[in-house]
């Protein structure tokens, strides 16, 4: 078991709206690790589309990604890459 944490900044223009959030959840769900996303005091399940949307993360929002499980490191690599690629949107 491993735990990993990293920081990302939402850099696409529209922020974490439905489609990027779906993409995030899809990638997160490929891994067996539990994924948590933290924004300020809020912590949500990174595999839940509803909770990810309720974060209402706009462009420039700082998020902490936390993974807990056997593939924690791989999960975080894949997720940070997705965020940096602006969810392949722009």
């Amino acid at each position: 078991m491993a735990e990993a944490t990293c920081e990302v900044t939402i850099c696409n223009k529209l922020g974490l709206h439905a489609r990027p959030a779906m993409a995030f959840v899809d990638v997160a769900s490929k891994f067996s690790s539990a994924i948590q996303v933290v924004k300020g005091k809020e912590t949500v399940d990174g595999k839940s589309i509803m909770q990810m949307l309720l974060l209402a993360a706009t462009q420039g929002t700082q998020l902490t990604l936390r993974a807990d499980g056997d593939d924690a490191a791989e999960a975080l690599n894949a997720l940070t890459a997705l965020v940096r690629r602006k969810f392949d949107e722009e």
């Binding site: 439905a18 779906m22 959840v25 899809d26 399940d45 595999k47 839940s48 589309i49 509803m50 909770q51």
Partner: peptide
Amino acid sequence: DFHLGVLRDRSL
């Protein structure tokens, strides 16, 4: 896709 995504949302 969004509708399907919500249906797969375990937390929900």
